[in-house]
Write a protein that binds this DNA or RNA. Structure first.
Length: 423
DNA sequence: TCTGGGGTCCTAGGACCC
DNA sequence: TCTGGGGTCCTAGGACCC
């Protein structure tokens, strides 16, 4: 049977989230900044028109932002995460099979649903999501995930489609594929884009028609799969339940430079706590822990130093105090005084299911069970009473190295104290 | 003064084994 | 001078995604 996929993508997601609870932003240029208010990571349509590039360092655009009265926001992930969940819950009503692909995208598999592959159906989905959540979305339909992605791009690019476009059985599919630059195809990034352009393959159509052997040789098996998908042969299946992550990281740039071992230790302990939370949330334990620290690479005049230490544990664990203890020992071997550090991180890998971990032979009987119960309790308290209600002292309290978030909007939907008030 | 964070997969090459 | 064949595991590096 002919496959039918829809790719639903929230328009300018973070900027749209800020708008949902502040209608005064309607029609105004809005940008959302990355952690530490560093780069622009989301722009409303009006902001795009001003020529503000994705990923642009905000400080380079200060003049422009001020001149045009651009409304600027720090990233508010509790808000975006919650609105994302609402959008996904809405979408689930329209398709029996769905893959949540990212915070702002989902694939729906509509294969075999009468009428569901039509642009009309997609338009209804679009209208309902907007009404239920306030978030505008675009929808692309195609016989493979790659073509659904591409159709979505066209839906967004060409205004006349009203945010919905289907490439299924399209009479001018060849011509359409010729209007899409090869580097805009899902899976073709900067490097492959360059390589393909040099080989005279400049559009999606040309890539679709490239010889298999050449593609396999230069773009590996992944590229070959992609080319087949462009031909309408579905090779990338829907992943309804995401497999457990194989690596879990928490890494941050600091809000200011950090020199003292003490502050660095606090930060690393804090990152370890976050990583361990994510680990337990997916029911896993980690057998491998990596810690890295780095100075500010954007200040080449400063003395530079960056290094990482990886530690293998004898037994996988998800017990925060033990992970912190190990991470701090790694840090002690890494730390060199006399540098201005800008970044640090903790990466957990060697991940196994927590249920498979056996207690150590020489451990005090019941120790493992006790540890797990403790972590479960801590997680439960923090989930219901708010993050960091219970935490390790090693994380510190003031967090002077913490993120800069000068333009944070309220957590409208996840904190009682920050609910929007209607007068 | 000011430049994000967190993932995935594939391949090549080296170590080691029989 | 000549110098097998095949397998596994691990790591580093490079590509990609949002």
């Amino acid at each position: 049977m002919e496959e039918v996929y829809a790719l639903v993508d929230c328009n300018n997601f973070y900027a749209s989230c800020e708008r949902v609870f502040d209608p005064s932003l309607e029609g105004k240029p809005v940008v959302v900044l990355s952690n530490n208010d560093g780069c622009v990571i989301a722009r409303s349509a009006e902001a795009k028109k001003l020529g503000i590039r994705m990923g642009a360092p905000a400080f380079l655009f200060e003049e422009l932002l001020k001149k045009h009265g651009v409304r600027i926001y720090s990233s508010n992930y509790p808000l975006y995460g919650d609105l994302s969940r609402r959008v996904m819950d809405s979408l689930r009503r329209f398709a029996p099979e769905m893959e949540v692909y990212s915070i702002d995208e989902a694939f729906l598999r509509l294969t075999g649903m009468a009428g569901a592959g039509s642009a009309d159906y997609a338009r209804r989905v679009r209208a309902d999501v907007k009404r239920w959540t306030g978030i505008p979305v675009s929808i692309g339909l195609g016989p493979s995930k790659t073509l659904a992605k591409l159709a979505n791009k066209i839906a967004k690019r060409d205004g006349q489609h009203g945010g919905v476009f289907s490439i299924i059985n399209h009479p001018f599919a060849d011509e359409l594929l010729d209007t899409v630059k090869v580097e805009d195809v899902w899976g073709i990034g900067r490097q492959y884009g360059k390589l393909l352009n040099n080989a005279g393959i400049s559009t999606a159509r040309r890539l679709r028609d490239a010889p298999d052997r050449w593609v396999k040789k230069h773009l590996t098996i992944v590229g070959l799969r992609l080319v087949w998908e462009l031909r309408g042969i579905s090779c990338v299946s829907l992943e309804e339940a995401p497999p457990p992550k194989k690596a879990i990281a928490c890494t941050r740039s600091f809000g200011r430079h950090v020199e003292s071992a003490e502050e660095l230790r606090e930060a690393v302990a804090f990152f370890t706590t976050r990583a361990a939370e994510k680990l337990r949330a997916q029911g896993s334990a980690a057998a491998c822990l990596q810690v890295f620290i780095a100075t500010d690479r954007f200040r080449p005049g400063d003395p530079q130093y960056a290094d990482a230490v990886t530690l293998k544990l004898s037994r996988p664990t998800a017990y925060t105090p033990e992970l912190i203890r190990r991470a701090l020992r790694c840090l002690d071997t890494l730390y060199r005084p006399g540098y201005r550090y800008r970044q640090a991180g903790v990466i957990l890998s060697g991940i196994t299911s927590l249920g498979d971990v056996q207690p150590g032979l020489f451990d005090t009987p019941g120790r493992e069970t006790k540890r797990r119960e403790l972590m479960e309790t801590v997680d439960r308290v923090n989930r219901t009473m708010g993050r960091d209600t219970v935490r390790c002292g090693a994380e510190g309290v003031r967090k002077p190295w913490g993120m800069r978030q000068r333009k944070l909007s309220p957590r409208y939907t996840t904190r009682w104290s920050e609910l929007p008030a209607v007068r």
